[in-house]
Simulated assay, not measured.
Amino acid sequence: MSGRRRAPRPAGRRRRVWAVAGVLALVVAVCAVAALALLRPGKARTTAVKAGTGPQSSPMTAPDGSERDIVPDACTALSQKVADQLTPGAEATEMSQGAQPDQHSECAWSLFGNTRRQLTVELRALTADGATSATGVATRTFGQEWESDRAGKELADTVKVRDSRGVSGVGEQAYVVYTVDDSGIGDAVANARLANVLVTVHFSGGDEKDGDAKPISSSDAANGALSAARDVISELQSQS
């Protein structure tokens, strides 16, 4: 993907996703720093969650049902068409993969100004743990992350969960959770599992008019995150 930037990868799934804002600030103008700072939560907090169904199983699985030892580059796993729909004109920023580049990849796209949008795509291939298969580890991890995300754990005091629901037709299991920050940023995280691979997408943003910030709506954020997750899952399946 032309014009791709590279930035270091912070540690930790939740901290890593939200810290993208701080990392990108190193490579954009000072005005971008202020815009992205709105996306970074502080200490953890548990919040109330709107009732929703659990993550759903789906007949949509990898063609051969096999586990994967490697994941593709997240910047190219997402189609340019979907990236342009969600963050038109934004450049892909590749996060360095650290110690396990074959098993982890992450990429971000950001828009600044009165219309702020940030999209992050993360792929993780989980490995077997003792008697537990790689798919078993991924299923367990997915469940833990579903519980954590819908409970609003590791979110700042200013961020609250507004909606959460299980989703069918995106990988073998999927969910989406929508949160709102007091600063006027709405964020949806979509998490999907395909065999032992977890695909985690954040789509967030807000619109400012006459000094008043309005978060991206729950439907727009969730639909955007799910469309990106669905697109990446489709790409993974095509490579099997």
Rank of each mutant, 00 (worst) to 15 (best):
M1Y: 09
G3S: 09
R4L: 10
R5L: 07
P8L: 09
P10S: 07
A11P: 06
G12C: 11
G12Q: 11
R13Q: 15
R16P: 01
W18P: 01
W18F: 14
A19F: 10
A19R: 05
V20W: 02
L24G: 01
A25W: 02
L26P: 06
A29Q: 06
A34R: 08
L36R: 03
L36N: 10
L38A: 04
L39Y: 03
R40T: 14
G42F: 14
A44Q: 06
R45N: 11
T46V: 12
A51V: 15
A51S: 05
G52Q: 03
G54W: 11
S57E: 11
S57Y: 15
P59I: 12
M60T: 10
T61E: 06
A62F: 02
A62P: 04
D64I: 14
D64T: 12
D64V: 13
G65L: 07
E67V: 14
E67N: 15
E67R: 08
P72D: 02
D73V: 09
C75D: 01
T76K: 07
A92P: 00
A92S: 03
T93R: 05
E94K: 07
S96C: 15
A99R: 08
Q100G: 12
H104Y: 11
E106I: 08
C107M: 02
A108Q: 03
W109G: 00
G113P: 13
Q118P: 01
L119H: 04
E122M: 10
L123F: 06
L126W: 02
T127A: 13
D129F: 15
D129H: 11
G130C: 12
G130K: 08
A134M: 04
A134V: 04
V137N: 07
T139F: 11
R140S: 12
R140I: 10
R140Y: 13
E145A: 12
W146Y: 08
R150Y: 06
R150I: 06
A151G: 07
A151V: 01
G152M: 04
K153C: 11
K153H: 12
D157W: 08
T158S: 15
V159A: 10
K160F: 10
V161K: 02
R162H: 09
D163H: 10
R165W: 14
V167K: 01
E172A: 10
Q173M: 15
Q173R: 11
A174N: 07
Y178A: 07
Y178N: 01
S183G: 09
G184Q: 05
G184M: 10
G184F: 09
A188R: 01
A188N: 09
V189C: 08
N191A: 13
N191E: 13
N191V: 08
R193S: 06
L194W: 00
N196S: 11
V197R: 09
T200G: 01
V201Q: 03
F203A: 03
S204K: 03
G206W: 02
D207P: 08
D207H: 12
E208I: 12
K209D: 02
D210E: 08
G211V: 11
A213D: 15
K214T: 13
K214Q: 03
I216F: 06
S217M: 13
A221M: 07
A221R: 00
A221Q: 02
A222C: 13
A222L: 05
N223T: 14
G224D: 06
G224K: 00
S227F: 05
A228S: 02
A229P: 00
R230Y: 09
Q237D: 03
S238H: 08
